[in-house]
């Protein structure tokens, strides 16, 4: 049991819900920026799992991993937003269906 009295399973269920939302949003939305935010959502859902379990198990590993995920997310945000910006400049659109040039 955690100190605040919130059971572990709640955290995990919340994380799962967040992850599902993110995945669904990534698959069903067309706006690249929205998809991008969905990725962040998924990453943070995983982060929540890590932190919750680390707290629950009294181990520091999960916390370390959460920091890694944050770093990766930051890097990803920098690169991803740059890509999105370039796509928008070239195509005047942020609709994912209109970006298929590498198909063939």
């Amino acid at each position: 049991m955690s100190a605040a009295g919130v059971p572990l399973s709640w955290y995990l269920v919340l994380a799962a819900l967040l992850f599902t939302l993110g995945a669904a949003g990534f698959i069903f939305r067309r706006n690249i920026i929205t998809m991008f935010m969905c990725i962040e959502l998924m990453l943070n859902a995983v982060n929540l799992t890590f932190v919750a379990l680390a707290y629950h198990l009294r181990q520091v590993d999960g916390l370390v991993l959460a920091f890694f995920v944050m770093v990766v997310a930051a890097a990803e945000a920098a690169v991803g937003l740059a890509i999105i910006l370039t796509v928008f400049r070239n195509r005047a659109s942020v609709q994912i269906d209109e970006v298929q040039a590498l198909k063939d």
Binding site: A23, F26, I96, K103
Partner: peptide, 14 residues
């Protein structure tokens, strides 16, 4: 599989 549709890739990954 390579349809160019990013969302279908994501679906495959999932």
């Amino acid at each position: 599989l390579q349809s160019g549709n990013l969302r279908s890739y994501a679906a495959w990954v999932l």
